[in-house]
């Protein structure tokens, strides 16, 4: 019944349309990168390649000699070995001037992952507004005069948001998958879509759909907690700026617990983040980037804890709060 109540809202339809619009934009961008080169582009590339080759044949030896000389000078200045990569210099290769279209087999999961964040945010908005509208319009108080068991009401609304979020996310992701396949097939850029690739895609889709359901439920809980859609979305935006963007970049230790790391780790089945370790030497400050892996399990645990905290706080507050 709660599910029917959410589905009957016009906003759900609007969000579906917004999701489809976002997918259309993504597909338009993908179309550009998957499109084969036109005759004019090929002609231009050939001209550029011929020019570069001619330049190398005429000046290649001198370029290498200049490089070695600058490398030697730098080495004397710094007092240590310096490698400018002069030995790797060689004639230009033809493929440098003929960029290959992106093949779906290589970009399928990253494309799904990058678009999923937007889709999940839209589903979150549905969750928030499904309950916040009831709180701000006062229809929650009408509801409670019929069903005064507050925890039952809260969790039925959260559950309904999950049940709406799951199929909605599935619908949007399937449209995205079909669109990506269609766009790449039309441009003959599917690549080698092996069973392994499809398995990866299937798992990714499953995780995105589950995330959509969970996020819709969390949105519904936040709608009850904060009572206004605008306030809830504002709090989330504020959190994204203050914690995810500012604190996240200042405090490296927060990285594995950030939502963006967690969501990427969950969707892609694991992720990583970079930590810069800087040391001061006689030659100045030297920084070295280290990649730290984040497992799927770790992302799952952070997600579960975050969801439990939001639901727990909402339940505690809603249990005792005066309802206007």
């Amino acid at each position: 019944m709660e599910v029917r109540r959410i589905r009957a809202r016009r906003l759900v339809l609007l969000v579906v349309l917004a999701g489809l619009g976002a997918i259309a934009l993504v597909l338009a961008g993908t179309w550009q990168s998957a499109r084969p080169l036109t005759d004019a582009q090929i002609e231009d590339a050939e001209r550029q390649y011929a020019f570069a080759l001619e330049d190398w044949e005429a000046n290649g030896e001198q370029m290498v000699a200049d490089c070695l000389e600058q490398q030697e000078r730098e080495s004397e200045l710094t007092g240590g070995p310096v490698d400018f990569g002069c030995e790797q210099m060689g004639p230009p290769q033809e493929e440098w001037f003929f960029p290959q279209a992106n093949e779906l087999a290589q970009t399928f999961v990253p494309l799904l992952s990058s678009t999923a964040t937007l889709l999940v945010l839209l589903v979150f908005a549905i969750g928030v507004t499904s309950t916040a509208a009831e709180m701000s319009s006062g229809s929650m108080s009408t509801w409670l005069t019929f069903v005064p068991q507050r925890m039952r009401v809260l969790f039925s609304k959260v559950g309904a948001a999950v049940l709406v979020g799951l199929p909605l996310t599935l619908l949007l992701v399937l449209v995205l998958v079909a669109g990506l396949v269609g766009v790449h097939a039309a441009n003959d850029a599917l690549g080698d879509l092996t069973g392994e690739v499809w398995t990866d895609v299937a798992w990714t889709v499953l995780r995105i759909v589950l995330l959509g359901g969970v996020v819709a439920g969390v949105g519904a809980a936040l709608g009850v907690l904060l009572r206004h859609t605008g306030v809830a979305l504002g709090v989330v935006l504020g959190y994204a700026v203050v914690v995810e963007a500012i604190l996240g970049s200042l405090v490296t230790r927060l990285q594995p617990f950030l939502l963006r790391t967690t969501m990427t780790g969950w969707i892609e089945g694991g992720t990583s983040y970079w930590v810069n370790e800087c040391t001061v030497t006689e030659r100045g400050t030297e920084c070295m980037g280290t990649e730290v892996p984040v497992s799927l399990l770790q992302s799952s645990l952070v997600l579960v804890v975050a969801v439990a905290v939001v639901l727990g706080v909402t339940a505690l507050v809603f249990r005792r709060r005066d309802v206007g």
Binding site: M1, R4, R5, A8, R9, R10, A133, E134, S137, G138, S139, S141, T142, W143, T145, F146, V147
Partner: peptide, 27 residues
């Protein structure tokens, strides 16, 4: 107990019948 507290509060986009049907289902 049936109650109306202050002004009637229903979701604006729902019809009267839909609002009542949802409440009827709830009870």
């Amino acid at each position: 107990v049936g109650a109306i507290v202050e002004s009637p509060k229903f979701l604006p986009s729902f019809s009267g019948r839909r609002s009542l049907t949802l409440l009827a289902d709830a009870i």
